[in-house]
């Protein structure tokens, strides 16, 4: 019995393969706008940065503004609150990482790493790292925040001290434009 081998691909097969391949590429390219239209629009992205006026905020006071659809805590700490926060060793924290978008991912959660150049200004994303509720300021045993949903407590640097929240409150990217104005995002 003679060996049978597969027939050589003919020019006829090539044209069908080429047509199908080009067609498949076309379908993929055509699909992209339908997928991309669900991404945030230009006007949503224009709101990705905000500027906050710090002048009306007194020491010991917190202001909540909206940033990227979430609450943003802007808190002016008293020297006592700063000292309390600095007294806590990182080893005693539930979450040892700074969670600060302005620093490297592995920066430790020292009080210095939770603020920018001005230690009295604490700017945090006001979303509990457990399941997303908004914690209440000046409540809880650590002088920071208490989340009423499941009892998580944060200290005066926004670090989680009692769970069930697993992480410290996030510090967003921000920079001071002047002594009284900060740009967040």
């Amino acid at each position: 019995m003679a060996d049978t081998t597969a027939p050589e691909p003919t020019r006829r097969d090539f044209i069908y393969v080429a047509t199908t391949a080009v067609g498949a590429v076309g379908v993929a390219l055509a699909a992209w706008p339908f997928i991309d239209q669900m991404n945030p629009t230009g006007s949503v992205l224009a709101m990705s940065s905000i500027e906050v006026d710090l002048s009306p905020i007194k020491p010991g006071q917190q202001v909540v503004v909206t940033w990227r659809s979430h609450p943003l805590f802007v808190r002016r700490r008293t020297p006592k609150e700063i000292a309390e926060s600095r007294a806590v060793p990182v080893s005693a924290l539930i979450d040892p990482l700074a969670r600060n978008a302005n620093l490297a991912d592995d920066a430790p959660a020292t009080d210095k790493n939770r603020v920018e150049s001005k230690a009295e200004w604490l700017i945090l994303v006001g979303v509990c790292t457990h399941l997303g509720c908004t914690p209440t300021a000046f409540e809880g045993n650590f002088g920071g925040w208490l989340c009423h949903c499941h009892g998580s407590q944060y200290d005066t640097a926004g670090r989680v001290r009692r769970g069930p929240a697993p992480q410290n409150l996030a510090v967003p990217k921000y920079a001071f434009l002047s002594d009284t104005r900060v740009k967040v995002g």
């Binding site: 006829r12 044209i15 069908y16 080429a18 047509t19 080009v22 067609g23 076309g26 390219l29």
Partner: peptide, 16 residues
């Protein structure tokens, strides 16, 4: 450009 190329390929397929 894509459509002209693709139409050309479809035309050749159709004729064949």
């Amino acid at each position: 450009a894509f459509l002209i190329v693709f139409s050309g390929l479809l035309f050749l397929s159709y004729r064949r």
